[in-house]
Design a protein around this nucleic acid. Structure first.
Lengths: 140, 140
DNA sequence: GCATACCCTACTAATTAGATAGGATAATAA
DNA sequence: TTATTATCCTATCTAATTAGTAGGGTATGC
């Protein structure tokens, strides 16, 4: 299951992407619009900013805004920053690979082989859906 | 990510399904073969037995064994018993549905709509792969 | 120079994961 | 009928994670 962090992060990104202009918008506005705890959202948006997806402006009239490239960024990128691995087991993760201590040979592990298929299917959606697609409910 | 409970449960089922005969086999044997903590595996197998997937026999020569139908049971059924929902958010779960408190209208939630697609893709794999397919690495 | 709004670190409460302990129960064999 | 074997069952424990909170620090703009 998705953590609330990821869910809230995606909702906030979607909120920003739905706006017509790209003027900075305050955390508090998003927080109220999407029913997300203010301080929790603050930390999530900071994470997304550090990851290079959002810009921020301090002081009056400040807030967060989408960077140009972010609309064309696949959901998979946000997912990895917010949630971590997309794979269901570390031994099939492309970006967070870890060996299983209990498993002598991945190639002969039924779980491993099935989870590769699940991962590929999930990836095909998350890599081929950009933030723009996401807010217009399009998926390749 | 899968919990160890689910991963170990699937490995144990796969171990049982790979055996030629269907004589009861002791927890300890599976535990050693698959490098799973004995007591932890004990509780997992008990869960699978209570769910109707395994039979058990006590005393000398006892142990766990597959019930007939279990070989043709889809992985999704084991997954739901061991892990819970297959969906990534409760509001798109078929078997463990819950509304999101923060979301006024599911139909207009970007997260909701994308996660339906992810769920459907994952389900198509887990529902169409039986335990038999699983151990022979087949997937529809 | 003051108000605004993000930046940053640390902390806490609640829950869950991953076991572990230890005895009860049932089946088999001597 | 008693000892042995192996599952059954409940309770407990520890560590990690999640979700959220507190409280300043820092930069911006009027």
């Amino acid at each position: 299951m998705l953590s609330r962090k990821t869910k809230y992060g995606l909702k906030a990104l979607s909120y920003l992407a739905k706006r017509e202009n790209n003027e900075p918008i305050q955390i508090e506005v998003i927080s109220k619009a999407e029913n997300i705890s203010l301080k929790f959202l603050e930390s999530i948006l900071l994470t997304l900013k550090k990851a290079g997806f959002l810009g921020a402006k301090k002081g009056k009239g400040g807030g967060y805004y989408l960077l140009e490239k972010t609309r064309n960024t696949p959901i998979a990128a946000f997912y990895r920053v917010l949630e971590g691995p997309i794979a269901l087991v570390p031994c099939v993760s492309l970006n967070f690979y870890e060996t299983c201590e209990d498993c002598p040979d991945e190639d002969y592990c039924s779980v491993h082989n099935l989870m590769i298929k699940v991962r590929d299917n999930t990836l095909s959606i998350l890599e081929n859906t950009t933030l723009s697609d996401f807010v217009t409910n399009q998926t390749l």
